[in-house]
Design a binder for these strands. Structure first.
Length: 997
DNA sequence: ACTCTGCGTAGAGGA
């Protein structure tokens, strides 16, 4: 069942109906849609296991992201590329200027920041970069032949004859034309490989066999380190890049005698060589690639032999057991963790090495890792199944176009322009060659896209971000000039393939298992997986953290630590809050380790967090604010802005809410000249906000562990919706933390049933709710009137919800035209009358007698219910209810579509629905409310329904707690009685006579 | 076949 791609090379190898694939003929690519990077393959040359671990645990285990040496290498590359592009004569001074510009470029700010934390300042970096200038100068002087007539970006090089393979001699004496207009090109070929070429050029050469003059496009790979001429370099550079370059650029596939070769330049001693691509190299590389792709595609999970119910991934490459190389392997800890102790031969030398990794860990600690790693792998496996369908190159451009994921028939409109705000960025504009249908709605500004040429081999030439778009033009921000070899282009939405959630989950777990004192575990006498906390003294003399078994939270006795100067202000702020909110904040202030704040629906959770942040600041504490989604983080920040509280928002500005933009790193560092200023900004920010996943990847947190930024308090909003491994990251950077959420609302989304059975949807919040002293409940709510609240109290909250105010309890929907409209209603529309009547706050419209049966067509939907909902909506608007105050909820996406179709007749509906996000799934409605909520339950079937979405208490709870004044539910009670949560709702509304047939 | 968000990326060099 595995999918392969056959790359036909030699038609002679076809025998009858069969195509021969062997060491001499043709090439087979396994899982061709899994694109493996060139570095991963060359990594696999030394140790396959390490290559896989590198992919799985993307974030380096030693927490030092980029070493100063690497930084220098990166910058030298960019200086070299700029130097090649120079149209004026290259002088020592012009090169020095390039070096200076590169070192102070904003592009390397965050890397330079990491350097600073390791005592490497920009001066040191510049000095090292400058040491390469003479080499760059001599290389360019030797090979560059300026030809002003060829125009900008076209440069001729002369290469030494010895650099060219024997059978091919440069045409006309010794001159080889080298057109260096493409730098740092993306590589995504059909061999299932991806990568970036430093420099691509066009050769004009004479073939000694045929005497013909050929043009061949060759890649050049630059190395600034030692001229090791290692296997790795040859594999990465020559085999992979050459294979690709030849494939993509030299038309008609590969004429047998054209020049498949690549150039390798070691800049340190200016040694360049031309390495021809041999068939054996090519097949060798692809065999290795195929192995890696197979390991990555199938992380089969096996039941372990031990008694516990966890699984271990069985399809993992073996250890190489070479102590010399293993010793300094950056993946050593992860290698050990994936070996899970028992699997390694006890007598091997490697065992000694690995056992050191485990020394500080107990079996319980390891079981925790094993449990969550297993859940993560299971989840990945399930996601992979779906992701495969997303892989866009398996469909034609026109198919993608019709799905709104692609814009075809684009041509270049003018040359790349420098971006006005972003340094080092270019903007390339395209225009639609045919204008039969517009493209205005295809993409949004800020979205990531891929730019491709029209030839099948020219997929993903460059990546970029949508800068502007209208019906006929689209402009893309890229970090370099878009190659313009082709006439026509298409632009695709960037589909994300690598599971960042997998990588970050595994990395977080790995860090938790590290020897870092902040992550220390304690022995657990009880059964595993009960995460809890132990106070461990760490080097900063503060405390944390994770441990099993459950440890009760601890508190200080009083609030004496609040600075005298702040007391009045703190008191004033506390008085502005209600009873339960005040208690929660006091609890947080007194806490030594952790607090859980249960924010029930409409209880002013955001208000409380905002007040909490401001009070913590007044107490002189530094606060980290996170949540899983950007919108949740920004939701808090927007309120914080109103109080003029300063903060630093980390994260891609395209994802950040526009009103928070001035506070993003990009916004705040706009006029910065040196990385030192960035360091200052980081150091001085008392409130830092970002998503959980950003913590695992952002440079702010990436500095070496002993200097890792430690916050006094970390606040995690919507914590009940965050998967446990993802939630760990921010906590590892704080001394104590506050989780805010509601475990009676929706849990983290887990797609794998198996993982869910193992408890993968248990958030850290939920896990810790068993520690009652840590819990504070915000029970006073400002949203629902008493009838709606009572329903929720009955179904979920067991009477704990209270209205914060009598005005909340008694409020009803405002319908100015209701009375005049009532006269229009007949007996036939009695149900409508009852549903709209402002005095009735909760009503269940039972469809079981009219048999509105659900249908399945790319999703479950129910047209009958959709009709009812749209009729209700129209009448509500007529009765004087502003559309913005109406919310429509269904559990299934397809039903939303069905409802939308019915509502499209309303004038200006498209605009209104987008503007006020009226129609959405239950899951997406969490955290929001509307005056009137219409719920369509959809499910109605003759036979049994089975356990599905509606069987989750928490989803039902979310659905019924979104309405302030009016909640109308539409559904087939006969079918819904199958679900216990629905049954409870139906029994309640029946008992109160709130059902209409 | 329900529900769906988060990531810039691949390589930068060392042994």
């Amino acid at each position: 069942g595995d999918i392969v791609n056959l790359v036909p090379e030699n038609t002679g190898a076809v025998k009858g109906n069969c195509t021969v694939v062997d060491d001499k003929n043709n090439i087979l690519v396994l899982h061709p849609d899994a694109l493996i990077s060139g570095t991963t393959v060359s990594n696999g040359l030394g140790c396959l296991r390490r290559a896989i671990l590198n992919e799985r645990f993307k974030i380096p285990t030693n927490a030092d992201n980029i070493s100063p040496v690497m930084l220098v290498g990166t910058i030298v590359h960019s200086v070299f590329q700029s130097a090649v592009k120079l149209t004026s004569t290259v002088t020592r001074d012009s090169l020095l200027k390039l070096a200076k510009d590169a070192v102070s470029s904003r592009r390397y700010f965050s890397d330079m920041y990491v350097g600073l934390t390791m005592n490497t300042d920009s001066k040191t970096v510049l000095a090292q970069v400058e040491s390469y200038i003479p080499q760059i100068e001599s290389w360019i002087k030797e090979y560059k032949r300026d030809r002003p007539t060829t125009g900008v970006g076209s440069i001729d090089f002369q290469l030494p004859i010895t650099a060219v393979p024997d059978h091919l001699k440069p045409a006309r004496g010794s001159t080889v034309r080298y057109n260096a207009s493409t730098l740092n090109e993306n590589v995504w070929p059909r061999f299932g490989l991806k990568g970036k070429i430093d420099l691509t050029g066009k050769f004009r050469i004479k073939n000694n066999k045929t005497q013909a003059i050929e043009h061949s496009i060759l890649p050049l790979e630059l190395k600034t380190g030692k001229d090791s001429h290692s296997m790795e370099h040859h594999v990465q550079v020559v085999a992979i890049y050459t294979m690709f370059c030849n494939e993509r650029r030299n038309k008609d596939g590969r004429p047998p005698d054209s020049l498949p070769a690549g150039l390798l330049l070691y800049l340190k001693n200016v040694k360049s060589s031309c390495v021809p691509l041999k068939r054996a190299d090519q097949t060798g590389v692809l065999l290795l690639r195929n192995k890696i792709a197979d390991y990555l595609a199938k992380t089969t999970i096996k039941k372990s032999t031990t008694s516990d119910s966890t699984f271990i991934p069985s399809n993992f490459p073996p250890t190489i057991d070479n102590t010399r190389s293993c010793q300094r392997c950056s993946q050593l800890r992860n290698c050990a963790l994936m070996s899970l102790k028992a699997a390694i031969d006890q007598t091997s030398e490697l065992m000694v090495l690995l056992s050191q990794i485990f020394e500080h860990l107990t079996d319980t600690d390891l079981a925790y890792f094993k449990h969550w790693a297993t859940c993560t792998f299971l989840e990945e496996q399930e996601t992979n199944k779906k992701e495969k369908q997303k892989r866009f190159w398996l469909k034609t451009a026109n198919e993608r176009m019709s799905e709104g994921k692609c814009i075809t028939n684009l041509e270049i409109a003018g040359s790349s322009q420098p971006h006005s705000d972003l340094p080092d960025s270019m903007v390339q504009t395209f225009k639609r060659y045919v204008s039969d249908c517009g493209m205005g709605n295809t993409f949004q500004i800020g979205e990531m896209v891929l730019i491709s040429g029209t030839e099948p081999n020219h997929i993903a030439m460059a990546t970029g971000v949508v800068h502007a778009i209208n019906q006929s033009f689209i402009s893309i921000t890229t970090d370099r000039c878009v190659p313009t070899f082709w006439l026509y282009f298409f632009i695709d939405r960037h589909v994300w393939l690598g599971g960042i959630s997998v990588q970050s989950a595994l990395s977080n777990l790995s860090i938790l298992m590290s020897d870092n004192p902040q992550c220390n575990m304690a022995t657990c006498p009880q059964s595993s997986l009960i995460l809890c906390f132990k106070i461990v003294k760490i080097m900063t003399n503060f405390f944390l953290l994770f441990i099993f078994p459950p440890r009760e939270p601890s508190f200080v006795k009083n609030l004496d630590f609040v600075p005298r100067s702040a007391k009045d202000e703190v008191g004033r702020m506390l008085r502005g809050l209600n009873r339960t909110q005040r208690q929660a904040i006091k609890r947080v202030l007194l806490s030594k380790d952790y607090t859980l704040v249960v924010g029930m629906p409409g209880s002013g959770k955001t208000t409380t967090i905002v007040a909490m942040i401001r009070i913590l600041l007044l107490c002189g504490l530094r606060v980290l604010v996170t949540s899983y989604t950007h919108s949740a983080v920004d939701n808090l920040l927007i309120k914080l802005i109103k109080y003029k509280t300063k903060f630093l928002r980390l994260g891609r500005s395209g994802q950040v809410h526009p009103s928070v933009h001035p506070y993003t790193e990009e916004g705040l560092s706009l006029n910065m000249k040196t990385p030192r200023e960035l360091l200052k900004l980081y150091d001085e920010s008392r409130v830092v906000a970002c998503t959980c996943l950003a913590v695992t990847s952002h440079a702010f947190f990436a500095i070496p562990s002993q200097n890792r930024p430690i916050f006094d308090v970390c606040i995690v909003d919507e914590a009940s919706q965050i998967a446990q491994p993802a939630c760990l990251a921010p906590l590892l950077h704080s001394r104590r933390f506050v989780l805010v959420g509601d475990h009676l609302q929706l849990p983290p989304l887990v797609v794998s049933q198996e993982a869910r059975k193992m408890g993968a949807d248990e958030s850290l919040f939920r896990r810790l709710t068993s520690h009652k002293p840590a819990l504070c409940e915000l029970t006073l709510q400002y949203r629902m009137n008493k009838d709606i609240m009572e329903l929720s109290n009955h179904v979920t909250y067991e009477g704990r919800l209270e209205c914060a105010h009598p005005s909340v309890a008694d409020s009803t929907v405002k319908l100015d035209n209701y009375e005049s409209m009532k006269t229009l209603m007949t007996d036939d529309t009695k149900w409508l009358n009852r549903a709209i009547d402002p005095k009735i706050s909760v009503l269940f419209l039972d469809t079981s007698q009219v048999s509105f049966v659900e249908k399945f067509n790319q999703g479950i939907h129910n047209t009958g219910e959709a009709k009812i909902i749209s009729a209700l909506t129209k009448w509500l608007i007529k009765a004087g209810c502003n559309a913005s105050r109406i919310g429509i909820i269904a559990p299934f996406r397809k039903q939303l579509k069905a409802i939308e179709e019915k509502l499209n007749q309303i004038e200006g509906w498209c605009f209104i629905k987008e503007m006020f996000r009226i129609i959405n799934t239950v899951d997406k409605y969490q955290g929001r409310d509307k005056s009137v909520i219409l719920v369509s339950f959809v499910r109605s079937k003759e036979e049994a329904l089975g356990e599905k979405l509606l069987n989750d208490w928490r989803r039902l709870n979310v659905a019924i707690t979104r309405a302030k004044h009016k909640l109308v539910m539409v559904g087939c009670t006969r079918s819904l009685m199958e679900y216990d949560p629905c049954k409870k709702i139906i029994e309640y509304v029946r008992s109160k006579d709130l059902v209409h047939f």
